[in-house]
């Protein structure tokens, strides 16, 4: 007897797929959902843009002052935008039962979690890095820092997605997990913020950026190695209890 297939996953498949193929499908599925529900990935970008607009109006429109604040402001607002998108990461899958299907899948759960987090990064971290130069213009960010800002945001936002997914997985079964999620996750974001903003500041004053970029890369490597297992463990706890 054929089992009822979940709506958002692919058509019934007689032969079991390989791990790589499953991960590719997982990413494609996330992208398809994002295409149909655009607000989920566009809203964090709008949020960041709006918050950036508040600073010149709230502090001072003085270009020299804004230029000194720009690297930190762009990083902090990008961090908050990622945080805003995290609550939805597992929420709808948890509500409609797709998360249980993922847990029941014969493929290793950490690999599927990594694929899901990769899709989250494609939908938040990459767009945030792409609009960063534009928002930098609003804050009179010196041109010397733009390339470093984009590269550092690409690396750092991937770490944000991985660490954030652990928190999202831990709190997905809680009805109002949003505020708790920020309390759990923000302390772990601080090192990334320090070196990310540090890299941009170094680029602006003409210092070598290799050291902070290497540290951002090291933190990403550590997160890739460790976070998928923590996400998988946390999802099992949230779903099975």
């Amino acid at each position: 007897m054929p089992l009822p297939e979940s709506t958002s996953t692919a058509a019934p498949s007689p032969a079991p797929r390989g791990l790589a193929a499953t991960c590719v499908r997982q990413v494609k599925r996330e992208l398809a959902i994002a295409r149909r529900r655009g607000s989920e990935w566009i809203n964090p970008l709008l949020f960041q843009a709006l918050v950036i607009v508040l600073f010149p109006l709230g502090i001072s429109p003085e270009p020299a002052l804004l230029a000194t604040l720009a690297p930190g402001l762009l990083w902090v607002t990008a961090l908050l935008a990622v945080l805003l998108s995290l609550d939805a990461l597992f929420r709808s899958d948890f509500d409609d039962g797709s998360l249980e299907q993922m847990l029941l899948s014969p493929q290793p759960l950490p690999a599927l979690c990594l694929a899901k987090t990769f899709a989250h990064w494609l939908l938040t971290g990459v767009p945030l890095s792409l609009i960063a130069p534009l928002l930098g213009l609003l804050l009179s960010l010196p041109a010397a820092g733009v390339a470093t800002l984009m590269a550092a945001l690409l690396l750092g936002s991937a770490t944000f997605s991985l660490i954030g997914a652990v928190g999202a997985a831990l709190t997905v079964s809680l009805p109002r997990g949003g505020v708790l999620l920020s309390l759990l996750i923000l302390p772990f974001y601080i090192p990334v913020l320090i070196f990310g903003a540090g890299a941009v500041n170094a680029a602006i004053v003409g210092d070598p950026v290799a050291a902070p970029m290497a540290l951002l890369g090291a933190m990403l490597a550590l997160a890739i190695a460790g976070a998928p297992f923590a996400i998988a463990g946390a999802l099992r706890i949230s779903v099975d209890g």
Partner: peptide
């Protein structure tokens, strides 16, 4: 995090994962 879970056993496991992180 421990206080947020209605079922203590679930909170205990979640806290253990967060501690390891």
């Amino acid at each position: 995090l421990r206080g947020a879970f209605a079922r203590p056993e679930q909170g205990a496991k979640a806290v253990a994962v967060l501690t390891l992180v």
